[in-house]
């Protein structure tokens, strides 16, 4: 599912939108996302053609949210090293359910299950198909273009995940308590957006001052 607002913001970032902030010292944005949506796990297709019960499955944390700046500060697009990220395959579940990365990041896809998986995506920002490989092995994909990449397993239709590829580094993923922290933000006024379970849910403005952490909470319902 493509979210126009997120796409527009990613495009704006690629074009180099500048926040009205000096670069002298930095602040932060912290807060909590309270997800009140019904986010039960997809059960996938029925196992009518099985001779027994399918293997036990994990439950993807679909309440996990990504919080990011709609407009990135000046200099956000300068080349900088990016650490590899990991999207694990564990108990027939992608972990995490949503993975934010910066364009150019290498994402590793280890198989931690004692069965085959076949990770693939047909999303325009990155089409790939990793084929089938056994437990303990991993394959890597570099995500060069900003956008949203839907990731699936060809064998297990209930497995899905999102990779959000940003052109800057001003984003964070909420933890189990719903907390997020975006650090090293130059002072200025920013639009901050929260994305949950495939959709942009809310956008709020916040003023960041040097040496301080601005608090911004969201309720997603």
């Amino acid at each position: 599912m493509v979210q126009p607002v997120l796409w527009a913001s990613l495009l704006a970032m690629v074009l180099g939108a500048k926040p009205d902030a000096p670069q002298a010292s930095l602040g932060a944005i912290v807060g909590q996302v309270d997800v009140r949506l019904e986010t039960g796990a997809s059960r996938g297709r029925p196992s009518v053609r099985e001779l027994g019960n399918p293997a036990a499955r994990g439950r993807p944390d679909r309440s996990q949210s990504i919080v990011y700046l709609e407009t990135a500060p000046q200099g956000a697009f300068e080349a900088r090293p990016v650490a590899p990220a990991v999207l694990d395959q564990r108990m027939e579940t992608f972990v995490p359910y949503a993975l934010p990365v910066t364009a150019g990041t290498s994402v590793q896809f280890p198989n931690s299950d004692p069965i085959f998986h076949n990770v693939f995506s047909l999303s325009k920002p990155k089409r790939f198909d990793l084929g089938r490989y056994p437990q303990g092995r991993s394959k890597t994909v570099v995500f060069d273009s900003p956008g949203i990449v839907r990731v699936f397993c060809e064998i297990h239709s209930h497995m899905s995940a999102f990779i959000l590829v940003f052109s800057h580094g001003y984003y964070d993923s909420t933890n189990a308590a719903g907390r997020y922290e975006i650090h090293a933000v130059p002072p200025g006024v920013y639009d901050v957006t929260v994305w949950t379970d495939g959709e942009v849910r809310a956008t709020k403005s916040v003023a960041v001052t040097a040496g301080e952490a601005a608090t911004l909470d969201f309720v997603v319902e």
Partner: peptide, 10 residues
């Protein structure tokens, strides 16, 4: 579990 978590279709 809720009904939707027990029910699947395809």
């Amino acid at each position: 579990r809720s009904f939707s978590e027990r029910f699947s279709y395809g």
